[in-house]
Computed example of a mutant assay.
Amino acid sequence: MCASNCSSQANPSSFILLGIPGLESAQHWLSIPLSSMYLITILGNGTILVVIKMEPSLHKPMYIFLSMLAAIDLAISTATVPKMLCTFLFDAGKISFGGCLAQMFFIHSFSVMEATVLVAMAFDRYVAICSPLRYEAILTKSVLLKIGVVVVARAVALITPFPVLAGRLPFCGSHLVPHTYCQHMAVVKLACTDVTVNSLYGLSVALYVGISDMLLIALSYGMILRAVLRLPSKEARLKAFNTCGSHICVILIAFVPGLFSILTHRFGHKVPPHARILLANLYLLLPATLNPIVYGVKTKEIRNRVFRKFWKRKDLY
């Protein structure tokens, strides 16, 4: 029936992002914390990238992974927040069909990249604590380059089917997307045909990335814990745990909102739609905002160099 009535509308010219249905009256106010988070994200992650680039002593695997994470956080926020602010402040939620598919690809790809980088950072901490004498021999520049290629290739391979499959669906009904960005299932559910393949693939990717990455991180930290508990002195154990503290905080910030978002989206049918959308936004934006703060506070080398740059400039004036 759809094929005969709306074949010419299989690819609509545009969609309209509604923002957060049920909280339309509060969206102008929500733009204030959203803008603040975006500003902190740009300043914090930008500072980390500049400090690591300018300090040769920080050109080490741990900080290279941190710079990857900062760049991904900047990218995912920039792919999401500007359009979200336009929707909240000016009711300018219109986005072209191609633009919506592109946003879908980039947002979900950057999310997978971030999870993969967190796994790489867990491996880095494992090598640093369990094989400190072989650290530089294991994590060479060529190995870091290969890890970077894997981070990008894995995300592209897993997420490319999202826009490809969605782009083939006929959209002959409403073009109003009840979300703040072109989230995969929010767009797919607007199609006037069976979307079981899209739904199952999206769920499979979410479960694969979430479960496999968490297992690899848990395995790394399990071996780290075993190695740390074998250290003879309490001071050595505390120092070892301290080197992992910031990474553990970042993992919790990244995976806990994501886990709640996936569970409420798939199984929380009694959870209000605006609550699910808010969780999805927190999953994307909270790590990007808090990661530079966590690493700035917990990582002595970065903290000292930021203070040194700040006081040096202050002295010049």
Rank of each mutant, 00 (worst) to 15 (best):
Y221H: 12
K234V: 03
P257F: 05
K239S: 14
L203Y: 12
L225I: 10
A240H: 08
L252Y: 01
H265V: 08
C249W: 01
V250A: 13
H247K: 01
A240L: 05
L203E: 13
F267S: 05
K234H: 07
L229G: 12
L200T: 14
G268F: 07
K239Q: 14
G210Q: 07
I248V: 10
L259R: 05
F260H: 08
S261G: 08
Y208H: 11
L229W: 10
S220R: 11
V209C: 04
I217E: 07
L216T: 07
I211C: 07
L225V: 11
R230L: 01
G268A: 06
F255T: 04
L225T: 15
H265Q: 14
G222E: 09
F267T: 05
D213W: 03
M223R: 15
G258K: 12
S204M: 12
V205F: 04
I224T: 04
S220D: 13
A254F: 06
Y221F: 15
G245C: 06
A254E: 00
L263G: 06
G268Y: 08
Y201P: 10
I253W: 01
L215E: 04
K234C: 01
V228R: 07
A227I: 02
V209E: 03
L216V: 05
S233A: 04
S204Q: 12
I262M: 14
L219I: 08
P232Q: 08
R266C: 09
K239I: 01
L231H: 04
L207F: 11
M223A: 13
T264H: 09
A236D: 10
L231V: 01
Y221T: 06
L238W: 08
V250K: 05
G258L: 02
R266N: 13
